[in-house]
């Protein structure tokens, strides 16, 4: 019971690892952004689910209700979601620009095909450009 009682955290962990894996393993920039979104969302769920109190009601004052859920995480995560949307927007915009400039958005390809271009002002050196 205790095991299942924390199911929200397991979901968070699974989502987080999927997102993290996608960010690291995928070269395609759109996919990277998707992974990033998953990763962020898992953090949001962590916050929100922590605000839920068993048997608690919505946090609106009314008669006959003693236990309320914690509204603060919702407020915080509202802000974080906005931040997440903004990040996604900037990331996508950059991908579009990169696509215009290079003709593709595969990170690995970009650093392999044109190592000079990534650091226009220097000779290629092995240890810097692959992240």
């Amino acid at each position: 019971m205790a095991f299942l009682g924390h199911y929200n955290y397991y979901i968070v962990v699974v989502l987080m690892m999927i997102g993290f894996y996608v960010v690291i393993a995928r070269g395609n920039m759109v996919k990277k952004i998707m992974g990033l979104n998953l990763f962020q969302t898992s953090a949001f769920i962590l916050f929100i689910s922590a605000g839920k109190i068993m048997g608690g009601s919505t946090p609106i004052l009314r008669d006959g209700v003693e236990v309320y859920s914690n509204p603060l995480p919702h407020v915080l995560i509202l802000t974080a979601i906005v931040v997440g949307v903004a990040t996604t927007a900037v990331g996508l915009a950059l991908s579009v620009r990169i696509n215009e400039a290079y003709g593709n958005i595969e990170d690995d390809l970009l650093s392999e095909e044109e190592p000079d271009d990534f650091a226009l002002t220097q000779e290629p050196s092995r240890d810097d450009d692959s992240s």
């Binding site: 920039m29 990331g91 950059l94 990169i98 400039a101 271009d117 990534f118 650091a119 226009l120 002002t121």
Partner: peptide, 13 residues
């Protein structure tokens, strides 16, 4: 340089 876009994206991630 267009490389600035790549650098920016990587920094974003």
């Amino acid at each position: 340089n267009r490389a600035a876009l790549l650098a920016s994206f990587r920094y974003l991630i």
